[in-house]
């Protein structure tokens, strides 16, 4: 059996003010998987992702990325991960190509590698006509494209997408879905969080549902859909929401 792309064991994160955001969360994402990570707002999805990628310090537990400890061997582990965060954590006065180029530089890509990759991503995400604009001058959808391009610049083995299609138009959603499917088929592992269940149903094969900092249900998409009848109902039952209104529809 191959090393999992991501293995989170008994992860715990308590913030300074005492809020327990993640509590004994364990998760395994096999290589090549398209993995859906679902849960209501405040369930601990983003905190888990922040612990995996180094934005947050875990309070306890272990995180392994392709077998590398994400805390002890953080530099080696981070080379393998690309993060598209939920919020736009970007210098608003920088231009799209610079933002993506800098990210490539942080990951140690040389000038020729960056140039070729940045050109490809600008073209692929239809950002070429907007190269002279600063990030703050872009529309919400274009901003999302820049952040995605930044996450993918170093061609990571594990791609973590935290609500990548929140607030974007149908066109970009389709461009993104096609691209993600393509790179997943190419062998990249993808962890996706989304509030759009149809998106998860369309893209993901494995799903974990998290609530109050714990994984409350995990399985394949077909298992989830079979019991209790649809992914939406499975989600509502797992998160403790009342499923009656769904049943009544």
């Amino acid at each position: 059996m191959s090393t999992p792309a991501l293995k989170v064991t008994n992860l715990r994160k308590v913030y300074r003010k005492g809020t327990v955001a993640v509590d004994d969360l364990s998760l395994t994402v096999p290589q090549g998987e398209f993995f859906g990570f679902l849960g209501p707002n405040g369930a601990g999805k983003s905190t888990t992702i922040h612990c995996i990628t180094g934005i947050a310090n875990p309070t306890g537990g272990t995180i392994e990325i392709f077998g590398l400890d994400a805390v002890k061997n953080y530099r080696e582990a981070r080379r393998l991960v690309g993060l598209c965060p939920q919020e736009f954590n970007v210098d608003p006065f920088a231009k799209p190509a610079d933002i993506v180029d800098w990210a490539g530089g942080y990951f140690g890509m040389n000038r020729a590698q960056r140039k070729s990759r940045v050109d490809y991503l600008m073209e692929r995400f239809e950002l070429t006509p907007h190269l002279k604009k600063t990030f703050r001058e872009l529309s919400g959808g274009l901003k999302r494209r820049v952040v995605l391009a930044r996450a993918l610049v170093h061609d990571p083995k594990l791609i973590i997408l935290d609500e990548p299609t929140a607030g974007v138009d149908v066109e970009l959603r389709r461009v993104l879905w096609n691209y993600l499917t393509e790179i997943n088929q190419d062998g990249r592992t993808i962890l996706l969080t989304s509030h759009y269940l149809e998106e998860v149903e369309r893209l993901c094969r494995q799903i974990a549902i998290v609530n109050k900092g714990k994984v409350v249900r995990e399985g394949t998409k077909s298992e989830m859909a079979a019991t209790p009848g649809s992914l939406e109902r499975a989600y509502l039952v797992a998160t403790g929401a009342e499923p009656d209104h769904v049943a009544g529809q």
């Binding site: 191959s2 090393t3 290589q31 080379r79 942080y106 083995k157 062998g187």
Partner: peptide, 18 residues
Amino acid sequence: SAQDFTPPQGDKMGVNWI
């Protein structure tokens, strides 16, 4: 379609000059 990937163990990064 994934090909198994194992990062080289003990492959410590030197200074990230770039």
